[in-house]
Design a protein around this nucleic acid. Structure first.
Length: 380
RNA sequence: GGUGGGGUUCCCGAGUGGCCAAAGGGAACAGACUGUAAAUCUGUCGGCGUACGCCUUCGGAGGUUCAAAUCCUCCCCCCACCA
């Protein structure tokens, strides 16, 4: 008789281990390993989390990173990456990868794209050439990239869109989502497929979007179209309305959010996954997140400050370098500045969600959130 | 010693009678950044005043003019080439 071994979790399985209010702590299984949620996912648009190596990412306990369909398709090309053995092999990152579909580029590159029922036509910002993304094409690219989690092609609608347009857009996004699922059947290639809720800042439209997507069997659902220019209050309003209505037995992903406070707000509303360029971009621009609040490392006050960036952080940057040195590196434009700053900011974000997971297990999440509010609210 | 070219606001540098507190860049000082066209972008940057404005400033001193960073005289300093 073979020795008893615990059941191997199935790819796509999502198990909630504990809850604290609406907040959940769980595990999502993917082809490249399990993810402990709630989790923050560093953004590595072009097959690289800017300024960091996979080794750096491992060191700060990164569980999963993002890649971008649109950017990797344009350069170096998804077929080329497929021939190199897929994105994991190409960039030498062995843990899970989630790829965004290009839906965000529908928003961010709105001046050089055209939307139709069939899909989105983009003009390349690199050379002006035209490229058509159908929902199927967006998925096919992600299949070639070999990501663990594929996002459906959606239209991320900007802030200020009227209700009529928002509804038409959301319903088209739903039709695109159905086409994605059809093109990528459940379990195919061990790649999960997530749908994306749209509906702008209209609660009934958010509910409509959710209801339509629930007709389709996705492996997880995302909230898209937030933090596109609205106030924090408006964002939280939609977040708290829709997140609790989402299926409890599937991972919930809040796309593109956010600040440490936003993330905790999302966790409180029952969200499991987050991504944002904020920690990486701000690191490169000198804004660092610490247990003492936001610090602009280029400020003159740090010129001769020998203290560590964050005395409560155990990352490589904080273990070794003074604020005075980090300020010098930034001011001098040294490459190392980008790496040390990015390493720290991501460590801080990953530490935040690790604390959240612990707090949920220990039933004291609201205390954790309150402590972060004390740190970051005063400076806002 | 001769000839030519220069000295401009923290630095480089434009400006050759009024539209000049003086382009542009840098530095400095602040701010922004939320599914990355971002190692990017924005603001301030002689002093005082909320503002119309007033005061000080373009190597130094003096002069011409209603008006000078800009024209004239003398002086000081720098650079290039020739002796």
């Amino acid at each position: 008789m073979p020795k008893f071994s615990p059941p191997i979790s199935q790819v796509g399985e999502f198990v909630v281990h504990s809850t604290d209010g609406l907040a959940r702590q769980g595990t999502l299984s993917t082809a490249h390993g399990d993810i402990q949620t709630p989790i923050f996912m560093p953004v590595g648009t072009q097959g690289s989390v800017k300024a960091l190596s996979p080794h750096d990412l491992e060191e700060i306990n990164t569980q999963i990173i993002l890649g971008n369909t649109y950017h990797l398709y344009l350069r170096p090309g998804d077929e080329l990456i497929k021939r190199r053995g897929g994105l994991h092999q190409f960039m030498r990152w062995e843990k899970p990868i989630l790829t965004d579909s290009g839906g965000f580029q529908v928003f961010s590159l709105k001046d050089i794209r055209k939307i139709s029922e069939q899909g989105v036509e983009f003009r390349s910002y690199l050379d002006g050439s035209k490229h058509f993304f159908s929902p199927e094409k967006a998925v096919e690219i992600q299949q070639n990239l070999g990501s663990d989690i594929i996002m459906v092609l959606d239209e991320c609608v900007g802030y200020g869109a009227d209700k009529d347009y928002t509804q038409k857009s959301l319903e088209r996004t739903t039709r695109w989502a159905a086409r994605c699922r059809e093109f990528h059947p459940k379990g195919h290639n061990s790649q999960l497929l997530f749908g994306i809720i749209q509906g702008g800042f209209f609660k009934d439209l958010r509910e409509l979007s959710l209801a339509q997507l629930q007709e389709i069997d996705f492996d997880g659902l995302a909230i898209g179209g937030l933090s596109v220019g609205e106030s924090t209050a408006e964002m939280y309003d939609i977040l708290h309305h829709i997140a609790p209505l989402m299926p409890k037995d599937k991972p919930r992903y809040l796309m593109g959010v956010g600040t440490p406070l936003d993330i905790l707000e999302g966790i409180e509303a029952g969200v499991d996954m987050f991504d944002c360029v904020l920690p990486t971009r701000n690191a490169r621009n000198g804004t660092l997140f610490t247990s003492q609040g936001k610090i602009n490392i280029k400020r003159a006050e740090f010129r001769e400050d020998d203290s560590p960036l964050d005395p409560n952080c155990s990352c490589y940057t904080c273990r070794n370098f003074s604020k005075a040195y980090l300020r010098h590196l930034y001011t001098a434009g040294e490459i190392l500045s980008y790496r040390l700053n990015t390493l720290h900011n991501l460590a801080f974000f990953l530490d935040t969600v690790a604390k959240a997971r612990k707090a949920i297990k220990e039933q004291n999440f609201s205390q954790l959130k309150a402590s972060y509010q004390d740190i970051f609210k005063a400076r806002a």
